[in-house]
Design a protein around this nucleic acid. Sequence first.
DNA 1: AAATGACATGTCAAGACGTACATGTCTCAG
DNA 2: CTGAGACATGTACGTCTTGACATGTCATTT
Lengths: 169, 169
Amino acid sequence: MSLRYAVLGLLARRPSTGYELTQTFDRSLRSSWHARHSQIYPELAKLEAAALVEVVGLGARRSKTYAVTAAGRAELRRWLVEVEPDRSQRSESGLRLFLTPLLDPDDRQATYERDLAHVELELAALGEVQAGMQNAPEPEAFAPQVELGIRMNTVLRDWLREQIKASAT
Amino acid sequence: MSLRYAVLGLLARRPSTGYELTQTFDRSLRSSWHARHSQIYPELAKLEAAALVEVVGLGARRSKTYAVTAAGRAELRRWLVEVEPDRSQRSESGLRLFLTPLLDPDDRQATYERDLAHVELELAALGEVQAGMQNAPEPEAFAPQVELGIRMNTVLRDWLREQIKASAT
DNA sequence: AAATGACATGTCAAGACGTACATGTCTCAG
DNA sequence: CTGAGACATGTACGTCTTGACATGTCATTT
């Protein structure tokens, strides 16, 4: 059911078209919940049928802009506050990291270096988000979340560097 | 396809029964890949059909102990080293954290406190794993992975404490 | 000797998800 | 004025995952 609340949550931040949501899933949400447009459009239709979102405008190229309704906001709040979180994760990267000690030193080194390159890109991207945040419409509310992302990736980067250095001996 | 390699990887660490794998998925792997027994048993059957694992012993209560074959080890190595990782994540907790700024201060405080309680339990559990690691059969290989888990959760704990303190003002 | 509860393996139906297919619109370069 | 490419929405089929159902074993307690 998380997809439903991910969509509801993004629309609560700002009304959007399905296309825009797809891009947001790829950008801001890539590190917590991933979804394709083939899932997003049907979910929007279901949410509209349930009166949790509504079409608030038609744009160019047949685009429809959706916004949450009052009922949608209430449902989102209920889920965030009252529903017990499912803490289980699905992260291929995490699984790979967990299994890496099974590799012999050369292979291990190579995969750690691949990961390090990726984490550094991630950190650069988050740095830009943080820098570009002053001129956002509703600015400061999400700053701590970006900061958390940076701290997490920094820990991972440092750990990877240590592993690479340690096995280079 | 990750499930397949998760199973293969756990069996590469040590031969196990399906039941034991289920428990390991709940314990060690809960923070990277989650699976139920209803997925694990069929996957073991498929892996056996593909000759990537084999039954190496029958135990009490009809239990079967599986171990990876040479082909299984090679396939696991191939996946870890040569297949481009899928970096997309699915973490309900991450999604919740991302959406929390939408809540009003009281609700936000409550959810952060719920998360903090959980992270502290997690840290305690990881601390025990780390402490009990000296007397493990193959001891030190996975120590850095445990250490990473502790660091990640520590960052999250500190961040949550900051958020709670900041909005208590 | 029977009940209880942990151990242990399996299947099935429904729902979630990804890949590929399909269609149409608007802008801009050439 | 035409073709390329981004914009925009949708569907279909197959696979992955969950939750519920189903069955049987072994050790301990009563």
